[in-house]
């Protein structure tokens, strides 16, 4: 019985402020990039192996949803009945230890699009 109707104000972002902010943000990115180019001369050594335990499903789920599912679990969009999100494992380092965390990424994220498209195609067959 707690029904609230609030008319929100139309919030306008000052275009001048927006332009100025954009300029500063780009400057910061460029500066970061330039400083790295100067600073890091030697090519870094690669340390990008995906550890085996990632595939064993023993990861800790911080999202409060089921931990049992297969990798690439999907949630259903209530409205359309279509898959809205996909589950991914994020690989991070704690000191020298590798850890994975589960996360849900929107289906339309460029990051997952290519792999998911393949899987979806397989499922339909």
């Amino acid at each position: 019985d707690d029904e609230v109707h609030v008319r929100q104000k139309v919030v306008e972002v000052d275009p001048q402020e927006e332009a100025e902010f954009d300029r500063e943000l780009r400057a910061l990115m460029q500066e970061s990039l330039d400083s790295r180019k100067l600073e890091v001369r030697a090519r870094p050594t690669l340390n990008m192996m995906i550890p085996m335990n990632v595939f064993e499903g023993s990861t800790k789920d911080h999202h409060g949803r089921g931990v049992e599912g297969e990798s690439g679990d999907e949630t259903l969009d209530e409205e359309t009945g279509r898959n809205k999100e996909v589950r991914v494992k994020v690989l991070v380092k704690r000191g020298n230890k590798q850890q994975t965390k589960q996360m849900y990424i929107p289906r339309d994220c460029s990051l997952v699009q290519s792999t998911k498209q393949k899987e979806a195609a397989e499922l339909e067959e």
């Binding site: 790295r36 870094p44 990632v54 990798s71 991914v88 494992k89 994020v90 994975t100 990051l111 792999t115």
Partner: peptide
């Protein structure tokens, strides 16, 4: 970036 086959992602810097 994500792994080619698996649903695994990592953070990677643009440079280098």
């Amino acid at each position: 970036i994500s792994a080619k086959a698996e649903s695994v992602v990592v953070l990677l810097c643009r440079e280098p």
